[in-house]
Design a protein around this nucleic acid. Structure first.
Lengths: 225, 225
DNA sequence: GATTTATGAATGAAGG
DNA sequence: CCTTCATTCATAAATC
């Protein structure tokens, strides 16, 4: 749609508010020259649809929250928390064919959270003894081995380091179309969505540190009522 | 900000899709006198980006709610709930599933050509220095980052390898039940079953794999079917 | 425009 | 630790 096309034109622009103002003037000033106020739709249907889609995802997350609460409070240490009617295929096909099992460990949400917490506490790679403890703890929340834990810390640290390297080194936002990337993300030619800018726009920051954005939150409240 | 002001002008409207459509017609019909329908860009890029940020904030809030809930419901062994310091990329759930859209890099034709040429020269994964050079070169032909280049080579090599395996099934294996992974076969994700509770405890999976998502704003009606 | 395919990206694991 | 590879997931692009 038109917005996408324009996005192309703005590949190298900066996402500053000044431009927002300018463009807003354009919108308001288009059409006839009379100074009269007419009502324009402020979002296209497609845009609204995108919005709706995303919001519905969050809605579902909230729903899942409820489900999870029920599950966890009713049988907390059950091996499998059944969320809704997830596709939890029992392990067999009708033909008795070999089914490929997931061959690598995948941390459960709870495990991940715990791991992250430990990681954030700042100690480096845990000692072997520590690993054992952690593994023991985590095994309450799913299959896990010491090797898994060890690898996880190794990889987590590497990831952290990498991110820092990419985020830190250049501060040169000076001139020409510095479409600076955040760690991994690329946006480039966005067709459906808006360019995700650098880490400055991390919602965490916005949410907990940037009062301005925070105050804008109620917009969505309006939308969803 | 501007956009909010516009919102003010429309305070009387409801946020229903039908009305969106109607208003769209209005937009098309106003302005200059020609009877043709023209479309104006109704949100500036900056405005849309702000919106995106807001959504992103909600994404984070939802995620943290989920995390918090997990903590509260399974915290027997946990000291306290730390919401703020969770590792979480703003745009992703803790499981790495993307919530709000983040565009992924797509190589331009020229970039692709160059990359292929370098790849064909046979050297393996370029060194970091090489990566930098390549990235630098390619950036003349479009948005790109070193990570993109690195990933590209990784994936390209893997692809090459896969193809070789497939086109060289020399040794006639006992064809009975050994359906080797064909390149398209990798989508059989629903075959994850495993005795672990992994998949079952990840609400996010459900969220994003549910095809019903996307059209409705029904908050808690979402899963009732 | 729904479904399928190709591929960018994320990450667990292995090797050094 | 670092690098590399294998696997997986999400999605852009292609196809129907």
């Amino acid at each position: 749609m038109e917005w996408e096309k324009q996005e192309q034109h703005h590949h190298h622009r900066h996402h500053h508010q000044q431009e927002e103002l300018e463009q807003n003037v354009n919108v308001g000033g288009n059409g006839n020259g009379n100074g009269g106020v007419f009502y324009v739709k402020v979002m296209t249907d497609a845009q609204v649809e995108i919005l709706r889609k995303q919001i519905s995802v969050y809605a579902t997350i909230c729903e899942q929250l409820v489900e999870m609460h029920k599950s966890l409070t009713s049988h907390q240490d059950l091996a499998g928390v059944r969320l809704g009617n997830l596709y939890c295929d029992p392990l067999m096909t009708s033909t008795g064919h070999k089914i490929s099992a997931r061959q690598r460990w995948t941390p459960t949400a709870v495990q991940l959270q715990i791991l992250e917490r430990i990681f954030d506490q700042g100690y480096g790679t845990p000692s072997k003894q520590k690993i054992k403890e952690i593994t023991s703890d985590l095994s309450q929340h799913g299959q896990i081995s010491e090797t898994n834990v060890y690898n996880w810390f190794q990889n987590r640290r590497a990831q952290s380091k990498r991110k820092q390297l990419i985020t830190t080194p250049n501060n040169a936002e000076s001139e020409v179309a510095t479409e600076v990337e955040s760690p991994k993300d690329q946006k480039t030619k966005s067709e459906n969505f808006l360019p995700q800018q650098n880490s400055a726009s991390r919602p965490e920051d916005l949410c907990f540190q940037n009062p301005e954005i925070g105050s804008r939150l109620h917009f969505l409240d309006q939308q969803t009522h």
